[in-house]
């Protein structure tokens, strides 16, 4: 299509129909395939600030106590506080976003190569505390887990649809506070399932350890399924 402007200069329309995020998604897919090949289940943890991601990872490492090899990449705006908290429990690399509100693939890829070993069973990526931006970024994970703490209110799923829609598991955290806050686990899970019907809901308390065994078992099942899928595909 051409159009005459000011009698002389002409304009052409260049049609591209190209997804702006396609290049990054391609890179994420390559990482996912590499992790699948290595038998590593990669988990991207999303939540609002302070919902308990680092506490859950501490509790997970304590529960497994070395039986399941796990490593962690932890994203933060500026500090390495979470990495310091996790260091006694598991190999961890801090990803400092320099103010960005979410992790992107290139930073994750760099962190992955900085880990002491490329051999483990579980790789956790703790995203920056934010329920909006991280939802749009595929980091190559197999499993996206959204943490919703009982102090945030059970009406949050409908307010952050993208984060819930793109997750496969919902962890309700800080269940020790249930007697003190108006929060219904059933209502939160039902609201979330209206957005994502396949969401697996797991209530957990990192403080008392309640539900941690179930959460770890769910992760082990997911990894078994990943390995089984791998054999199917190659055989």
């Amino acid at each position: 299509m051409t159009e005459v402007i000011a009698g002389r200069a002409r304009v052409k329309t260049v049609v591209l129909n190209r997804d702006v995020n396609a290049p990054l998604r391609g890179r994420a897919e390559q990482l996912r395939q590499e992790w699948t090949r290595r038998g590593i289940l990669v988990v991207n943890l999303l939540s609002s600030p302070g919902a308990g991601k680092t506490s859950l990872l501490e509790a997970t490492a304590k529960h497994w106590s070395g039986r399941q090899g796990m490593q962690v990449l932890v994203g933060d705006l500026a500090t390495d506080r979470d990495a310091q908290r996790l260091a006694p429990w598991a190999p961890v690399v801090q990803l400092t976003t320099g103010g960005a509100c979410h992790l992107e693939v290139p930073l994750v890829e760099r962190g992955w190569h900085e880990l002491p070993s490329q051999d483990c069973r579980f790789l956790f990526i703790e995203n920056v505390g934010n329920l909006v931006c991280p939802a749009s970024h595929d980091l190559g994970e197999h499993l996206r887990v959204l943490l919703l703490s009982t102090t945030e209110g059970d009406d949050k799923p409908g307010k952050y649809p993208k984060a819930f829609r793109t997750s496969q598991m919902l962890v309700i955290s800080k269940t020790d506070l249930l007697p003190h806050v108006p929060f219904s686990v059933d209502a939160a899970c039902a609201d979330a399932r209206a957005i994502q019907p396949d969401l697996e809901c797991v209530p957990v308390c990192a403080r008392t350890g309640a539900g941690v065994a179930e959460w770890c078992a769910a992760l082990e099942r997911r990894r078994d399924a990943l390995l089984a899928g791998r054999t199917d595909a190659s055989g």
Binding site: T2, A9, V11, K12, T13, V15, L16, N17, D19, V20
Partner: peptide, 17 residues
């Protein structure tokens, strides 16, 4: 989030489609 198209001036003498 898709880049659909853009309009660009043509060079003098550039063939038109």
């Amino acid at each position: 989030f898709r880049l659909v198209s853009f309009d660009q001036f043509t060079k003098p003498g550039e063939p038109q489609e």
